[in-house]
Design a protein around this nucleic acid. Sequence first.
RNA 1: GCGCCCGUAGCUCAGCUGGAUAGAGCAACUGGCUACGAACCAGUAGGUCGGAGGUUCGAAUCCUUCCGGGCGCACCA
Length: 673
Amino acid sequence: MYRIVQQSLQARIQSILLARYEVTLSQLVVEQPPSIALGELALPVAFELAKRLRKAPRAIAQELAAELSADLASLPGVAAVEVAGAGYLNVRLNRVAATQQIAQDRHADIGGPGFRLIEHTSINPNKAAHIGHLRNAILGDTFQRLLRPDSYKSGYQVGVQNYIDNTGVQVADVVVGLRELEQFDLDTVRALQQRLAAEGTRFDYYCWDLYARVSQWYTDSTDAAELARRKQVRLDTLHALEHGGNETAEIADLVATAVLRRHLETMQRLGIEYDFLPRESEILSLHFWDAARALMIEKGVLYQETEGKNKGCWVMRRAGNEAETTDGPDEDAKVIVRSNGTVTYVGKDIAYHLWKFGLLPGKDFGYAPFHQYTTHTCWISTAGREGEQPPTFGQADAIYNVIDSRQNDPQNNVIAALRGMGFTAEADRYTHFSYEMVALTPRCALELGYPISEEDQKRAYIEVSGRKGFGVKADDLLDRLIDAAQQQVDERHPALTQQERRSIATQVAVGALRYFMLRYTRNTVIAFDFKDALSFEGETGPYVQYAIVRAANIFRKAETTAEAALAAMLALDAEALSAAMDGEQGSTLWETWLLVSKLTLVLEQSIATSEPAYLAKYAFQLAQQFNNFYHRHHILNETDPSRKTVLLATAAVAQREMTRALGYLGIEAPPVM
RNA sequence: GCGCCCGUAGCUCAGCUGGAUAGAGCAACUGGCUACGAACCAGUAGGUCGGAGGUUCGAAUCCUUCCGGGCGCACCA
């Protein structure tokens, strides 16, 4: 509702400005005054205009206020416009009308045309997911929920991809571990998988340890010749994977697919699902790069260096280097094709992103169903074109890549390539959804039993490292959270069945984890600590869940429903509503309604800034406001019937919006907790 | 050396396109369960917004510079 008033106010003022002063403002700021006593909306527009019109801000504000006041009918819901302070234009809402609109769930829509592709998770399929990967997946999944069409908004068409680098050096390393350290072949690896499954060991956990061992093995010999051999083994393995069609590649596929399945399981525990899993093996075997190279050469982006250190390579001007180098070779150029003819990572990434935008003529993946969710199928790329055809995943109008900030440079190189090829519209709609890493506090690292140098102990945080096996695994954290929540649920609800208690504990644990990863803005490094992450109090997901449970309890005890409470309130006459909402007495109640009416506004801001943290913060504020209201008014003991009706309706709208806000954060509201 | 990010209360963080008195959570202290569940609420205390200049009617927010910290800058992936 708040957003509707904002929009109509902005439109009305723009037209007045144009008619009266012949000015158009590119943006018209609307904010909320510091106190509700000053009104519900405030516009500092007069300050902005003072300079251009050579007129005192207060005088301008007065003129605007007079004009707006003369035609209040054109601004539904607005009761009065007045001038305050040095020239603020303050707007008061008609609380009765606004309350009724909120009760009826009238709100602005969000959405538009076009297909938006979101890529997130993209974990190397060679080890268990850790807390850094969780931040990625939770950010991406939440953002996807903000965009997607649902019962609240028309939204945007969305596709969710999880890129699988199944032919990279990380998978190769685990294959080296299996073959060199364990002396396994294809059959024994299969047997190993069966044995691990039988004894209940997660395969990605096994790989986690093996990967750390191999990484050390590459460097821990004193014999130089042996070290060289190990490096060569690594390189040969990598090339065998890239080439395909050999036993090494088959082992790699076994490993990558098994670990990928584990990742999907882990993410599904958190309510995270995917539509499509494009794999690097197909990008190679379907020769996406050949098409991309031809296009890049044609557009003049890719050229062969004839002198200098990059002689013989095919290179591209690096992002940020605007000027054409006139004297001699561009020594800073980015190599795309090595002198031995192989393509670098950035080159493959450019090809992949051309495909995303539908710019690779004649190239597409083959598709096969890989995993069935309750509501849809997750597809995987294949080399062949046989089988069922999924919905279109390429041809995106806009893309969002959830990738941590350490990948800033490579991402910018891909964007620069698109721009250089003349695909400026695509480059503009390429969002690197960047975020900072999750690191461990030294205390947390010690707690986990890792040896920490004295120097590191003084640091604020220590970077996790998959190669060292140093980090907190996603499933471990979730298991610990569920255990902690279960303890409390067992105490509070001994009458419930074990299964019911488990289900509630899981919802609380997921709520705590997802909220924890979302409460920080994207470019804040999260210094992970079990104490903070395992908290269910204060600014946490369970705090909001608890507020919803409290609201639900009110309706249960009152033997009514939220819907009935709202209908009852809408049946009240304006006088009764006004008695509850207006004046200083009603202001605390009205403040709750006002906050409740802002969901659309907050969603829009979160989308526009790619910042889910705003919504997380808002969900918390809603719960805080509700808890305050809950303590101030004892609803069921209220003797005045119309006042009781209003109080019940307040709980109903608060519960409705808290549930929605949590829903977008991917957090469920338990029935009890 | 170059690029990106960060520096706000004891700790962890918000503060959106510059706007009215810089806000939360945690920790500390005080008070509140015969109430719709205390995973809660109310209150107290805690700030030279890293420093210095500048732009502006107005700066935590924009610009310059310095200080401190982090992360990137391969024909690796």
